[in-house]
Design a binder for these strands. Structure first.
Length: 553
RNA sequence: GCGCCCGUAGCUCAGCGGAUAGAGCAGCUGCCUUCUAAGCAGUUGGUCGCAGGUUCGAAUCCUGCCGGGCGCGCCA
């Protein structure tokens, strides 16, 4: 019996009570969720359904709870139902019913944890979207880790996801980048407002290596060469870094193509049709104030140039026309001022800003070194690139430590700590559980122990086995909730709990027999199912975070 | 000034109205001649920023205040 089955049974029991007593069934929820009480005395699972419904049907909570308990206790697999406190229902399962979960997990394998919760939703997930004028750095890294994990989690919940990286390649920053490259190649000082850093000289040198004659060209032609090749080389470097980090983008979308393809004009026409465009002071405006924005936004400047905002609008409309129901933007806290205007774009385009667009703001990552704040500055050379981070701590530790906390809270990373590559990172705690299982299973195979085709689930009756089974049973709900709330950190926290639960099981329950600690053959077999189920959930969960599940450590 | 986010153990952080507020790390005390001790058991450590309110019940929801981060261009 899975938690979902049990929750369904609770609801069925409540319905029966309502029906028998002629209570108003319109107050019944469509589904109920069970809680995992921290205190074992409160049962394996607990329901607050009676507390929630009692007042609405005019019954004392404890009386309603007692009636439901009476009904529920007849459900096969349910060992006991107790009414506690103001009207909690505390449930216990028969070990045999609980132990069945190990079979379900093992048989589902990689599919365990997947669901159809978000089936039918087409999601465009845009993140990182770094300017192609410099390497991917720490400021982008949080969203790279969280965004890619979210991509995997949404897909696991059944959504159809496209991950997308927007390339700001149309603005003046590309020109500044090109002039910076040109200056570096000539050995001249970086222009005012130019880009500095070793990578500028490196890219410039690569362009010169490809085109030795470039510096002989007229300056405008030479800068054009640096712009085109420098941009391509930078993009390749960004792509390589992200790939190394395990981050995949289905689409790299060029801002420039919005202008060249006519998408911007198309978007302006669309917004005009919707009646939210007007002219004033020689410029063309979008009346975003009609939808909660602080002020209207300029689409076309007095000098005739379209704004970045116009490109944003065109990009959004383009996404929608590509068939995405939900356009999700993952932005840094320094962009939170854009939330209302982006939502207003959707509204002005005739969409539902509460459904078709979703903007998630992630707080910034602060860096400290031995507790002292480190300011990220390109000029001071204190920018840390993604590649440097990977070199220092590896992909797994970096991804995990960035994905394990809510993006609502600012995250402080201590360079000393993360480069120490020590136990400070809980990823090892989780990975170790997986490696330990892998080792045990190797040993079992060597000794000739086989999981077989079946086992007696009633043998998994040790308290630690029950804890482990219940924790394994939570995984599908955790994944579905993480997907719905767009909170990958829930998966990481769950894995930490699972790893701890497994370690405690391992400590208390011998799986393979030893001379001094014999284990009945049937119990070994049942425990091998449970151990394999644990391995599967750890591996599936780590995979959702883009973190490896090592066989050995 | 206005807006968004945050404030929970020594540190980094969980806890989308439920029972005695948790994890990892750090500290202390125990536990390996055979399934990985990167582990387990025990222990130390908390005015959940402050003050009101809402209700059977508030770290969680509402209001105000205090503290911190970030943002408020016909820039990109």
């Amino acid at each position: 019996m899975t938690p979902a089955n049990l929750a369904e049974a609770v609801l069925t029991a409540v319905r029966a009570v309502f029906s028998r007593r002629g209570l108003d069934s319109s107050v019944l929820p469509e589904s109920v969720t069970l809680e995992r009480p921290r205190n074992p005395e409160h049962g394996d699972y607990a329901s607050t359904i009676a507390l929630q419904l009692a007042k609405r049907v005019g019954m004392p909570p404890r009386d309603l709870a007692a009636a439901v308990a009476e009904e529920l206790s007849r459900t096969p697999g349910v060992k006991s139902v107790d009414v506690a406190g103001p009207g909690f229902l505390n449930l216990r399962l028969d070990p045999a019913a609980a132990g069945q979960l190990a079979r379900e997990v093992v048989l589902a394998g990689q599919a365990y944890g997947r669901s159809d919760r978000l089936a039918g939703t087409r999601v465009n997930l845009e993140f990182v979207s770094a300017n192609p004028t410099g390497p991917i750095h720490l400021g982008h890294t949080r969203w790279a880790a969280v965004g890619d994990a979210l991509r995997r989690i949404l897909a696991a919940a059944g959504a159809e996801v496209t991950s997308e990286h927007y390339i700001n390649d149309a603005g003046s920053q590309i020109d500044r980048f090109a002039r910076s490259l040109y200056a570096a190649a000539k050995g001249e000082p970086t222009p005012e407002d130019g880009y500095v850093g070793e990578y500028v000289a490196e890219i410039a040198a690569r362009v010169v290596a490809e085109r030795p004659d470039v510096l002989d060209l007229p300056i405008d032609d030479a800068v054009a060469v640096f712009r085109d090749r420098g941009y391509q080389l930078m993009l390749e470097e960004m792509r390589a870094s992200l790939e190394r980090f395990g981050v995949r983008f289905d689409v790299w979308f060029s801002e420039r193509t919005l202008h060249t393809s006519g998408a911007v004009d198309h978007a302006l026409a669309r917004l005009r049709e919707q009646g939210h465009v007007y002219e004033a002071d020689g410029a063309v405006w979008l009346r975003t104030t009609a939808f909660d924005d602080d002020k209207d936004r300029v689409l076309v400047r007095r000098n005739g140039e379209v704004t970045y905002f116009a490109a944003d609008s065109a990009y959004y409309i383009n996404k929608r026309e590509r068939g995405f129901d939900k356009c999700v933007y993952l932005l840094g806290a320094d962009h939170h001022g854009y939330v209302n205007r982006l939502r207003a774009i959707a509204a002005c385009a005739g969409d539902d800003p509460d459904y078709n667009i979703e903007i998630l703001i992630g707080q910034l990552v602060n860096l400290v070194r031995n507790g002292e704040p480190v300011r990220l500055s390109k000029r001071a050379g204190t920018i840390i690139t993604l590649d440097e981070l990977i070199d220092a701590v590896g992909v797994d530790a970096a991804r995990y430590s960035l994905a394990r906390s809510s993006t609502d809270s600012p995250l402080t990373l201590d360079i000393e700590v993360i480069t120490r590559n020590s136990n400070d990172n809980p990823v090892y705690y989780v990975q170790y559980a997986h490696a330990r299982i892998a080792s045990l299973l190797r040993m079992a195979a060597e000794l000739g122990f086989d999981r077989g085709t079946d086992f007696d689930p009633g043998l998994l009756s040790h308290e630690r086995e029950g804890d482990l089974l219940r924790t394994l049973g939570e995984f599908p709900t955790v994944v579905a909730t993480a997907a719905e709330l767009r909170e990958p950190h829930r998966v990481a926290r769950y894995l930490e709990e699972l790893a701890g639960t497994y370690h405690r099981f391992y400590d208390a329950c011998q799986v393979l027999p030893r001379a001094d600690r014999p284990v009945p053959q049937e119990l070994t077999r049942a425990r091998l199912w449970l151990v394999e189920a644990s391995r599967i959930v750890l591996a599936n969960g780590l995979s959702l975070l883009g973190v490896s599940a090592p066989e050995r450590m």
